[in-house]
Design a protein around this nucleic acid. Structure first.
Lengths: 224, 224
DNA sequence: AAATGCATAGACAGACCTGTCTACATGGCA
DNA sequence: TGCCATGTAGACAGGTCTGTCTATGCATTT
């Protein structure tokens, strides 16, 4: 997500803002576990006392990082959506209503600092061992879905459509992350998916409404 | 991926097989970085000398783990695909040609040991700091795409379709991982995406063939 | 019988981890 | 003037990390 300008008001504890900002950059770039507290305080230019005064434990900082990141990213995303929506309405030729989402994603993925979704990454790092972080990640995903819902006709099944689109977006994100030069493939695939989604919504052949057990097998498959 | 029976021939160094197997289980369950060598040797029931004789460094073990996991998972996946394909051909009513992939995914995601895609997780953990691991992850993704390609008509654009489907699959995987009870949402969304994909392939309205720059902006967006 | 290969047990080094501690400086406010 | 929040600098504790070390046992092969 480009251009992460500092949103914190500097009058309220500049040290805290610097720590949070540094944590954001290092956590996202190098991973949370790989970033030690010593590296954080050195980069932020504070001392340990200051650091631990603001964030009593690293876990607290991680949670603050996730909330900060969420706010930052969502702000950028809804703005990018609106931006591309305006550009699309100016252009004559019709496009998929989800095209703004694809364009926003393309912007982000092509950014040199792109390193995937911070929330997916944290869940991948910690999983069940950090449930509060997983919670925030879930809330983030829900908010992303909610942000793209207004792109769609509110009339029929916009909810299910938005959910499917959000999944396609996540897939493109991890695909672009896993293979450097495959960002193009990821974006092309995302376009195909979103186009197919809206096309099928126009011609409602089989409206799959949410319930997955229709196709999923019930037999609990025990694993090793 | 259920039922990970031991594939290693036991005559050749049972210790090595035990280490690899243990690494597989712990790395996948708890994360790679979170799993220390001491925990590995304790669980595998070997000593440090034995451990380091077979895997000179933890990085070597990580790579071996990824290769092992790849073989294991792909074996399961192609089998599950064939299984669901047979079941589908027995059933009378027509379904999407990608339905076997969705059914296989459902099997996996509903497995209690499911903790997302091991390769996505490793990339999320290490990113640029472990390029060889990222390479293996890319190869894995390519192989998954290749495995679902035969489900599609080889005639027109099966390649692009399979790539899009693979992205949808990845999206469903991370979605199911991020939010526990949202496995159902992920699978429903995956079904919607795959159905839409094959439906749009039958009525080729706009065939987006690979090149993404058609929709993606060229302006290099510098980031902070 | 000797040698070689592979296993065991566990101490150890050196680095890094999170988090606490003492001691001191500064600046705003009652 | 005194108080207190906030900042600085850096030593330190206690744990964990990867990786190396010595010393020993037990096969199979030569």
């Amino acid at each position: 997500m480009p251009d992460t300008t500092n949103l914190e008001p500097p009058e309220k504890s500049s040290a805290r803002a610097r720590i949070l900002r540094t944590a954001h950059d290092l956590f996202y770039r190098d991973g949370v576990r790989a970033t030690g507290v010593d590296a954080l305080i050195a980069t932020a230019g504070v001392t340990k006392v200051t650091f631990y005064r603001h964030f009593p434990s690293k876990d607290d900082l991680i949670l603050a990082y996730l909330n900060y990141r969420h706010e930052l990213w969502m702000t950028w995303f809804v703005d990018a959506l609106a931006r591309h929506r305006r550009a699309q309405s100016r252009a004559k030729r019709e496009r998929s209503p989800l095209a703004p989402a694809a364009l926003a994603l393309a912007e982000w993925i092509r950014d040199p600092a792109f390193r995937g979704c911070a929330f997916i990454n944290v869940v991948a790092e910690f999983g069940d061992h950090f449930p509060r972080a997983v919670e925030i990640a879930g809330a983030h995903k829900r908010d992303v879905t909610a942000a793209i819902t207004p792109l769609l006709d509110s009339s029929r099944g916009a909810q299910a459509l938005a959910r499917a689109a959000a999944i396609a977006i996540d897939g493109a994100i991890v695909r672009a992350q896993a293979d450097d030069e495959s960002a193009g493939i990821a974006l092309a695939g995302l376009n195909d998916l979103l186009d197919a989604l809206t096309a099928s919504a126009r011609t409602p052949r089989h409206r799959a409404e949410a319930e997955p057990t229709e196709t999923a097998p019930r037999n609990q498959h025990r694993a090793g």
